[in-house]
Simulated scan of single mutants.
Amino acid sequence: MYYSTVYPSPVGMLTLACDGENLVGLWLEGQKYFGSTIRGEMTERNEIPVFAVAKEWLDRYFAGEKPAASELPLRPMGSAFRQDVWQVLRGIPYGTVTTYGEIAKRIAAKNNRESMSGQAVGGAVGHNPISIIIPCHRVVGANGSLTGFAGGIGAKIKLLALEGVDMSRLCVPKKGTAL
């Protein structure tokens, strides 16, 4: 059984999901892959303790504080490969960005492989079911392109600006499938 609640944020309405004990989802309204990892229906239930803790975390984050993902009981659902990528995302420091290629190098090294597909990493990043808290918005293209955020480029820009990221070397792609 899964439960949901909503949270109004500066980047739009967020839907949070839990299994009763752990946060399993956080999606922006209209986000690509919204709820895709949830098998079955979600019942709205606002009073679950993990939701109170997550909302307090979000309050702090949107107030400009730097809460860590490790403060929350997270249980994103996905393949072992996606779990590896999401673990790397959790380690990206607040206010910084990394590239899909850098994540691919880390995953390849972890698995004793010579290389790893940046596109495969991009797919895993894009399917991150716990946006913001597992900071997929901190991943950019090798050329500084702000591509690939399932919540939309506008939300990605707002989140990075909130964190104080130097936006001068980043750019919005003019075309592409990941806009």
Results as ranks from 00 to 15, higher is better:
Ser79Val: 02
Lys110Met: 11
Glu114Leu: 13
Lys105Cys: 14
Thr96Arg: 09
Ile92Ala: 07
Pro129Ser: 03
Arg75Asp: 13
Arg113Phe: 08
Ala120Met: 13
Lys105Ser: 12
Ser115Ala: 13
Arg106Ser: 10
Gly123Phe: 14
Ala124Asn: 01
Arg90Tyr: 12
Phe81Thr: 03
Gly101Leu: 15
Asp84Tyr: 04
Asn111Tyr: 09
Ala109Asn: 04
Gln119Lys: 09
Asn128Leu: 04
Pro93Ile: 11
Thr98Leu: 02
Ile107Met: 04
Gly126Pro: 09
Tyr100Glu: 01
Gly95Cys: 04
Ile103Tyr: 06
Ile92Ser: 14
Arg90Pro: 02
Gly78Pro: 00
Gly118Val: 07
Pro129Met: 03
Ala108Ser: 07
Val125Trp: 09
Gln119Ile: 10
Arg90Asp: 08
Gln83Ala: 10
Lys110Asn: 13
Lys105Phe: 06
Gly101Pro: 03
Gln83Gly: 05
Gly78Lys: 02
Leu89Arg: 00
Ile92Tyr: 11
Pro93His: 06
Asn111Pro: 05
Ala120Glu: 02
Pro76Asn: 02
Pro93Phe: 04
His127Ala: 15
Val85Asp: 00
Ala108Ile: 06
Ala108Met: 09
Pro76Leu: 05
Arg113His: 04
Val97Gly: 00
Ser117Lys: 12
Ala104Ser: 10
Arg90Thr: 14
Ala80Lys: 15
Val125Arg: 00
Arg75Gly: 03
Gly78Leu: 04
Phe81Trp: 07
Ile107Asp: 00
Gly101Thr: 15
Phe81Arg: 06
Ile92Met: 09
Gln119Arg: 07
Asn128Lys: 00
Gly122Ile: 05
Arg113Asn: 11
Gly122Ala: 13
His127Lys: 13
Val97Arg: 00
Ser79Asn: 01
Arg82Val: 05
Trp86Val: 00
Ala80Tyr: 11
Phe81Tyr: 10
Gly95Arg: 01
Ala104Lys: 08
Arg82His: 13
Arg82Glu: 12
Val88Thr: 06
Phe81Gln: 08
Arg75Asn: 13
Ile103Val: 08
Val125Thr: 05
Met116Ser: 09
Glu102Lys: 14
Thr96Asp: 05
Gly118Ser: 11
Gly126Ser: 12
His127Asp: 13
Lys110His: 10
Met77Gly: 02
Ile130Ser: 00
Val85Lys: 05
Ser115Leu: 12
Gln83Lys: 14
Gly122Tyr: 01
Ser115Cys: 10
